[in-house]
Design a protein around this nucleic acid. Sequence first.
DNA 1: TAATTAAGTGTCTCAGTGACATTATTTTTA
DNA 2: TAAAAATAATGTCACTGAGACACTTAATTA
Lengths: 230, 230
Amino acid sequence: MKDSKKEFINPLFTVDSVLFTVVDNQLKVLLVKRAIEPFNGRWALPGGFVDVKQDDNTDMTAQRKLYEKTGITPKYLEQLKVFSGLNRDPRGFSVTLTYFALVAYEDTEPHINTVEEATWTEINELRNLPLAFDHREIIEAAFQRLQQKALYSMVPVYCCAEKFTVGQLKSVVEVIINKPLQRKSLMRRIEASGMFKEVDQKVQSGGRLAQLYSLKPDVDVVHFERNLGA
Amino acid sequence: MKDSKKEFINPLFTVDSVLFTVVDNQLKVLLVKRAIEPFNGRWALPGGFVDVKQDDNTDMTAQRKLYEKTGITPKYLEQLKVFSGLNRDPRGFSVTLTYFALVAYEDTEPHINTVEEATWTEINELRNLPLAFDHREIIEAAFQRLQQKALYSMVPVYCCAEKFTVGQLKSVVEVIINKPLQRKSLMRRIEASGMFKEVDQKVQSGGRLAQLYSLKPDVDVVHFERNLGA
DNA sequence: TAATTAAGTGTCTCAGTGACATTATTTTTA
DNA sequence: TAAAAATAATGTCACTGAGACACTTAATTA
């Protein structure tokens, strides 16, 4: 039949997500332990097959798989890249669409702790962990994308709580780009982006009280014309 | 069988490419006429199914399909984005991985003219053409990516011939970003990028002879820290 | 009450782009 | 043949936004 021919041609298609968060001045990636072959028992990115009945598109597949495996709904989600090839999956030619996602650690803690098979892994500890498939390479690509985006946009704010101080955002960005950042530069961008509003509330921080900011509703991420920290 | 279950879950997967070129101060996209259902007879992006026997990965699928349909091997090819959904293909849930590609018109002319069913369409004329699937949306996304890249990288050079003058590249960039560009700015970037070498040859251009440049072998596209033409 | 700590401001420097004048070299035209 | 026109290439100044860092402000802590 025509159908079987198409199916034969069609490669294995999956969706995987690289979910980042920042906690304790460390950049962490969410890994789940595989419970089936291949790579049974290994750490892997959360993901799986599209379910045509539930998913209107692949974005929903990514969201659904993250939620099913960890109870997390990320604040930020965008496509990263497709990885494909004959050798990346022992079952044959496979294609995985990967996503790049961010959450505030505060939004995840209650969920993640109840899930036995999911864990936050510090980005540098990955070198010692054997991962399933080419997931190490995928994480590396996601990490580079995150670093780049941190230089010309405010995406790192999605690793912050709903209300955040300049100091907190500064710390998050510094962890991501792995170098010090001028507080002044960040303040200029908060102002210039127009993405944020000052919350009528301050919070203690060891010194003078810090102004809280929050995202305006329905704003898009602004892209600047220059990079930080050349 | 396990296999049949997997195949059932698997959506229809295709690869499509948005191939741009610049000629006569116009930005053009390559379209091919569909010869099968659905959308038989409509203009569409060149693409098709992965052939596991021939393709090591999806990049090769994109290249192969472009070559099969038009004889063109683009100088530049990168992943754009995945488009997916239940309604974009009448056959059911489908996923298409799209690529974004550039060629010099000079490299294509002999081929394209021999192919009845392929044509270069000016980007603004697309509004009047009914395209297959969501291909108009895909082209729009590719166009925006191209415009962005032209602001912070030298990718437009892949729309130039192997040897090109500053004036030619300037003209290509201006067509892409649709605004005038300072010759001086471009020269600074040619110098700063280190991607090019001066060819020991000049060419006439109506006035003073123009220096020819060419890409150094095996260079990566340099990304600048500022955008052009704020 | 003074010291400490972190928030927030003021301002100078620096680098890269935009603008545009100037010079250089070729073709075209009177 | 000389002047004009055309395009290439260079020089230089202004503008903008990031980096650096001193300074002020307002809280906690000793």
